[in-house]
C-alpha cells in the first residue's frame, strides 16, 4: 500500500538541516539568531537519533532525544539570560562588537 522511505533519506534531510545550521551559525551576526541556529543543529541531530531508533527497532534513540530536549531547554534558558546580560552591559546584539577579549 504505502511506499516505504529509505532511512538514508531521513539522514540526508538531517544533514541538510545541520549544514544550514552551521552556515547560519557562521554567517549570522545577531547573537540571538546564532543561538537559534544551535537549536536548529540540535534538531537535526535529534532527527538522526529518531531515524536510527526506527531502524534498529529500539527505543534507546528516542530516550536520547528526550534528554537532548531537556538539556536544550535548560541551555536556552541560561543562554537567553546571558544574552540579556550582554545586552545590558554592551547595549548591542552584534557579535562583532562584543570584543572585550580581542582588544
Amino acid at each position: 500500500m504505502s511506499a516505504a522511505v529509505p532511512i538514508s533519506w531521513y539522514l540526508v534531510l538531517a544533514a541538510i538541516l545541520f549544514s544550514v545550521g552551521i552556515a547560519s551559525f557562521l554567517i549570522k551576526r545577531n547573537i540571538i539568531t546564532i543561538f537559534m541556529s544551535i537549536e536548529l543543529m540540535l534538531n537535526a541531530v535529534n532527527l538522526t537519533f529518531v531515524a536510527f531508533a526506527h531502524m534498529w527497532h529500539q527505543i534507546t534513540g528516542q530516550i536520547f532525544v528526550f534528554f537532548v530536549m531537556v538539556v536544550a531547554a535548560a541551555e536556552a534558558a541560561v543562554g537567553l539570560a546571558i544574552i540579556i546580560a550582554i545586552y545590558r552591559t554592551r547595549q548591542t546584539l552584534n557579535v562583532d562588537q562584543v570584543n572585550l577579549l580581542k582588544n
Binding site: A4, V5, P6, I7, S8, L11, V12, F18, S19, I22
Partner: peptide, 19 residues
Amino acid sequence: IFCLLSFVFLSNGKSFGVT
C-alpha cells in the same frame, strides 16, 4: 560538511534499510 555527510549516508544507504 553536507557533501561529506550525504556521501556517507547515501553510500551506506542499502544497509540502513527502509522505514
